[in-house]
Design a binder for these strands. Sequence first.
DNA 1: TTAGATTTGTTAAAAATTTAACAGCTATTT
DNA 2: AAATAGCTGTTAAATTTTTAACAAATCTAA
Lengths: 205, 205
Amino acid sequence: MKRLPDKTVERLSQYRRTLNNQLAKGKTHIFSHEIANLLHITPVQVRRDIMLIGYSGTLRKGYDISEMIELIGTIIDTDQGVRIAVIGMGNLGKAFIHYMYEKRTKLKIVAAFDVNPDKIDKSYEDVYCYHLDKLEEIMIEKEISVAIIATPPEVASPLADRLKEAGIRGILNYTPRPLSPREGVYLEEHDMITSLEKVAYFVKN
Amino acid sequence: MKRLPDKTVERLSQYRRTLNNQLAKGKTHIFSHEIANLLHITPVQVRRDIMLIGYSGTLRKGYDISEMIELIGTIIDTDQGVRIAVIGMGNLGKAFIHYMYEKRTKLKIVAAFDVNPDKIDKSYEDVYCYHLDKLEEIMIEKEISVAIIATPPEVASPLADRLKEAGIRGILNYTPRPLSPREGVYLEEHDMITSLEKVAYFVKN
DNA sequence: TTAGATTTGTTAAAAATTTAACAGCTATTT
DNA sequence: AAATAGCTGTTAAATTTTTAACAAATCTAA
Ligand SMILES: NC(=O)c1ccc[n+]([C@@H]2O[C@H](COP(=O)([O-])OP(=O)(O)OC[C@H]3O[C@@H](n4cnc5c(N)ncnc54)[C@H](O)[C@@H]3O)[C@@H](O)[C@H]2O)c1
Ligand SMILES: NC(=O)c1ccc[n+]([C@@H]2O[C@H](COP(=O)([O-])OP(=O)(O)OC[C@H]3O[C@@H](n4cnc5c(N)ncnc54)[C@H](O)[C@@H]3O)[C@@H](O)[C@H]2O)c1
């Protein structure tokens, strides 16, 4: 398949979440305009994305929810699933773990790391927290390929170096200190203040 | 000034954050390529954004950091600042409050709301937590115009109705249940799983 | 069975965003 | 003081993303 547009990849993830919700409600089929309403985008965009991933619905019946969830899975999931570490077991780290807990997705948080003795060698919702010293060892042992950084901002950059050294493939940085890109490591960042300021700007205007 | 592109508004917030960091390090001027490196975007984009907000740097000296911070403030801040409520004082709500604490921005979290007696009538980092019953009353009293929803997903939608009724102007929804847009209320949503799945996808390919 | 209403799938057009190109200014060097 | 190098500001081009347009398929109901 041709490389999908970035924006489509982002939306696939949202489609799947929405589809799972609907499936749980007992629906088996769904129309493009229904998906669109749930995600406040346009039906055309939904259909176009679905076209791009090579799926087809049934005329006047819509899309088969299970099939589509399945297919999206084959596109955005890896076969064995992605194994993830959370670094920094503070509020944010815990919110993450809590959020992922019980979500049946191929993304699995398999370890947490911290430096605070109060947090180490305990489990939070089935995720065991190790001392940061064990990072390299556990990363290999658990085949971790993605890390979420939720530490204080000062340590983010050296941590990213260390992660790269240990073979990390992707980093999701929630620290407000943007990281410089590292060869071979996919980097994604998010800042709540940016989201908030955007809301504030558009509220004002 | 002409309406700024959405993407530019988002970046302005990031510029300011970066500029504040640099100012704190004692720098007074900065080049477009320096900003670009720190945020891993291109220098052209930085210059273009700066042009759009009508600021000018000095040739061969770059941009005056303080002036630019000031100017960005006049664009994305409101005069009196935006007064914000966090609803749901769990991990995520606390992470938010902790993050905003001591950040000198015009965005101010002035109240939190919850329904759990353990959380109510206590302060967390100077933010007082009220019972949700007091929502309307406190919203008026504290002139709250933006709400961050960090409750369990089930309550998000009725909550949004209630917020709208009480005159909210913007909602930042961190619940994984997308809200339908409400007339006159600017809505922004974010899902960590989407970010994660994006990382996972690009790590795989 | 024909007309009408829906809804998909696809191509084309439009809009938004990013990137490139380059002219012009300023400091520095020779 | 002339040449050079470093950066900015701006217009134009390229790319990406969204929206529109519409043919084709399927069901409903007259
Ligand atoms: N991007 C955003 O939108 C956003 C939102 C909230 C918080 N944040 C940021 O996320 C980070 C975490 O926020 P929080 O509220 O969870 O803070 P927190 O203080 O509750 O948690 C930080 C945790 O990191 C641990 N830690 C410290 N140094 C470490 C190291 N070297 N290695 C591993 N762990 C280490 C601490 O022991 C603590 O458990 C902060 O940098 C904060 O600024 C970002
Ligand atoms: N979008 C994301 O990226 C992301 C990430 C993490 C968590 N989440 C979501 O954010 C929400 C909060 O996560 P968390 O880890 O903080 O959960 P949490 O359980 O720690 O916190 C939820 C809080 O909301 C309170 N609450 C319950 N009902 C309420 C109501 N009607 N009004 C006000 N408060 C109420 C609870 O008492 C609790 O304090 C959840 O919906 C979770 O799924 C989203």
